[in-house]
Design a protein around this nucleic acid. Structure first.
Length: 432
RNA sequence: GUGAGUGUAGCUCAAUUGGUAGAGCGCCAGACUGUGGAUCUGGAUGUCGAGGGUUCGAGCCCCUUCACUCACCCCA
């Protein structure tokens, strides 16, 4: 019998992986609530037209990476390849703009793209998205980048850097594009075959080609930042001033482009070392045109998406350990003890402690062994003796062999005693 | 979609020029039947990714196929 396994590019996040994931997600929730952003949850499945219109028909995502199929009634539906289009759709569908002039939103969940998997890239992957709708002011750009910066800081992400660029607007980008084509046309000979093609389809992409020859050819290319119109230039300068005020370090990166059609003006990325070729941890920017493209009134907006798979991978490589509540393991030696243990465990759990036992009810040895495997901090042993005297044997599994490693304590008020013991050990460990 | 590499016990890997599988770790059980993590002893486990071919004989050679990994492309 052939065993069924998960679909290519779609992986299981196993129990051992989850503490880090929960740490990352918890950190995001906590941070965003302090910036007073509201969570929004949208369906995984949307009408195909939403993405075709929002992201751009010509982008790779729409042209060849979407999970698109006919629903039972024939409607073309698509598993969301990113979150912004859905968030904006919901924003318009429920008239959120009418309730508030400024909407701060975030979401977190799986996205789907039918790409060839590789390190840091999956067909089902998780993104944290943050969107700020209704503000054209550069202060909004700065807030968005600050959130990303604070997120990285709260996670203690090492070896990451913020890259910043401006893509200009409908007024100045076409001019830049022309200048770029003109520049590269003069050195077609130095470009790789793909770039020769790109030159006509998407000249901006030539800038971030990895081939050595193209990189050299791109060195003297004109910069978007030099071709910005007066408004875009002023906007960008203001954003930079805010970032300086906040002490946020960034690198100007004139080769930083966005693959989705809806981006304008400010774009930024959080890049990390140690992720292989997929080194972008988060990316975002201003998308002043999207709301209107999706049928709403012209509304300025900015946002970013962070790749949680990559962040978790980075943290794991940096040896990060997610904090976990200490575990109390109850060991019962016979049927009577086990009955009594049930009540004890309920009590302790209701008092907020994390408690489990070995429901296989085997020998004390195998129970102790499981306690150890599970990483328990304390073992509570219940046997005939303890039942008779109204006590439990408390063993500190993490302590070195010593007189107070194990002791007989009264069952009354046990949870307070345990809390004391755990606090003590925690404070000991926190000393450098 | 393109290219390269890899597929042998739960995990990491080994198997001389083709002679029908082994180690470490892990797991389970024992070592004065009320005590884990160290040590010792014993034990279970593989259709050698799948299908076909060559051969007296294939984990090793050939073909096909699938999966995984990394890179390109693109992106988070």
């Amino acid at each position: 019998m052939e065993r069924i396994q998960s679909i290519r590019g779609m992986r299981d996040l196993l129990p051992a992986d989850m503490p880090l994931w929960q740490f990352v997600e918890g950190t995001a929730r906590d941070l965003l609530s302090r910036f007073n952003y509201s969570e929004i949850r949208t369906p995984l499945l949307e009408p195909t037209a939403l993405f075709a219109r929002g992201i751009g028909e010509a982008t790779d995502i729409v042209a060849k990476e979407m999970y698109t199929f006919a629903d039972r009634d024939g409607e073309s539906v698509t598993l969301r390849p990113e979150g912004t289009a859905s968030a904006v759709r919901a924003y318009l569908e429920h008239n959120l703009a009418n309730e508030l002039p400024l909407n701060r939103l975030w979401y977190l969940g799986p996205m789907f793209r039918h790409e060839r998997p590789q390190k840091g890239r999956f067909r089902q992957f998780y993104q944290l998205g943050v969107e700020l709708l209704g503000a054209a002011h550069p202060a909004a750009d700065a807030e968005m980048i600050e959130i990303l910066w604070e997120f990285a800081a709260a996670l203690s992400l090492r070896a990451v850097s913020v890259h910043l660029n401006s893509l200009g607007c409908a007024a100045c980008r076409p001019g830049y594009r022309e200048a770029l084509v003109e520049y590269f046309t003069g050195r077609v000979g130095e470009l790789c075959p793909t770039c020769t093609e790109r030159l006509h389809k998407n000249p901006l992409r030539v800038l971030d080609c990895k081939v050595e020859g193209c990189r050299r050819a791109a060195e003297g290319a004109p910069h978007m930042l030099d071709k910005l119109c007066a408004e875009c230039a002023a906007h960008f300068d203001a954003v930079r001033a805010y970032l300086d005020q906040l002490g946020i370090a960034y690198a100007l990166d004139h080769r930083l482009m966005r693959g989705l059609d809806y981006y304008t003006r400010t774009t930024f990325e959080l890049l990390a070392e140690g992720l292989g070729a997929q080194n972008a941890v988060a990316g975002g920017g201003r998308y002043d045109g999207l709301v209107e493209m999706l049928g709403g009134r012209p509304t300025p907006a900015i946002g970013f998406a962070a790749g949680l798979d990559r962040i978790v991978m980075l943290l794991a490589e940096q040896g990060a350990r997610a904090p976990e509540a200490p575990l109390v393991f109850v060991v019962a030696l016979d049927t009577e003890s086990h009955k009594s243990a049930l009540s004890l465990m309920r009590e302790l759990r209701r008092s907020g402690l994390r408690v489990e036992c070995d429901v296989r009810c085997g020998s004390i040895k195998s129970q102790m062994k499981l306690a150890d495997r599970r990483g328990a901090r304390l073992a509570l042993i219940l046997g005939e003796e303890e039942l008779r005297t109204g006590t439990v044997t408390l063993k500190d599994l993490a302590a070195a062999e010593s007189a107070d490693k194990q002791s007989r304590v009264p069952r009354q008020g046990l949870d307070a005693l345990i809390r004391d013991k755990l606090r003590l050990r925690v404070s000991e460990e926190m000393r450098p």
